[in-house]
């Protein structure tokens, strides 16, 4: 929890580490969309190669990627098995009562498996090579054009950075309140259902009250330091878009074109 600000970031100096968060974010989002353009093994092969290239270029051990997969295993298996059981196909290879597994449903399940794994790998590349704060900067800068339609982009960026900054503090508060209540003889997860449920209240209310007091103090401190909204503000942190970032964007465009062409041909 103390490491929330680091997230899953693994410090490094690879080309992917040095890329601008905006280009990485853009490519990750685009990848999630174009993955639905792949309909056969060749399409998926392309996507697998693209992802593998990213993994290799990040110079981060594959074990970290597999670790990123772990919390999602249940979710993947759930989806894959349901696909297998409930997709109707003509070539039934196995049938038992209401369960029918066909070649089509099997292939479909494999594709869906890959779809999940690839998406997870892609977002893992992003979070392993970019610290959360830089990602927040990336979101703020990436949304920049929305300023024209009066979206308070700057405020959103500041808000993200403040919530990331206060997560460890609030986590400490939570631990402290839980210990204090324990010392006063409260048991968590003990007793009957009603008791268990009620035990949440004396934790959450003090937590919220003390946190909103923190938020009040913070607002006063921000004002005393001259904060009056995003207008006329300069930024200490800066992002630098370089040719490698343009290249990355070009690479995903090429992927998109290839996938579209292939789905037209086949």
């Amino acid at each position: 929890m103390q490491n929330m600000l680091m997230g899953r970031y693994i410090p490094g100096d690879s080309i992917i580490h040095r890329m601008d968060p905006r280009s990485k974010l853009l490519v990750m989002i685009a990848f999630v969309v174009i993955i639905f353009l792949a309909h056969d093994w060749l399409g998926y092969l392309l996507l697998v190669l693209y992802t593998l290239a990213g993994v290799l270029l990040s110079k981060i051990s594959v074990s970290y990627f597999l670790r990123g997969l772990r919390p999602m295993i249940g979710l993947i298996l759930f989806t894959v098995i349901f696909q297998m059981l409930f997709t109707n196909g003509q070539h039934v290879i196995f049938s038992l009562w209401f369960i029918k597994i066909s070649t089509e449903s099997l292939i479909n399940a494999v594709y869906i498996f890959f779809r999940f794994v690839l998406i997870i790998f892609m977002s893992t590349i992003l979070t392993l090579t970019t610290p959360p704060l830089t990602l927040a900067d990336g979101i703020e800068k990436g949304l920049g054009p929305l300023k024209k339609i009066k979206v308070p982009v700057h405020e959103l960026g500041l808000m993200l950075s403040i919530s990331l900054r206060f997560i460890p503090t609030l986590m400490d508060d939570t631990t402290m309140i839980m210990n204090a209540q324990k010392a006063r003889g409260m048991d968590f997860g003990e007793g009957n259902l009603l008791k268990k449920i009620k035990s949440v209240i004396p934790i959450l209310i003090p937590l919220f009250v003390s946190s909103f007091r923190r938020a009040d103090d913070l607002a006063v401190a921000m004002e005393s330091r001259g904060y009056q909204g995003g207008d006329g503000r300069t930024k200490y942190r800066q992002l630098k878009w370089q040719s490698r970032d343009s290249l990355l964007v070009v690479s995903i465009i090429i992927m998109t074109i290839l996938l579209i062409l292939w789905s037209k041909v086949s």
Partner: peptide, 8 residues
């Protein structure tokens, strides 16, 4: 804590 705005 309550006047530390920046993340670093």
């Amino acid at each position: 804590d309550n006047q530390f705005v920046g993340a670093t």
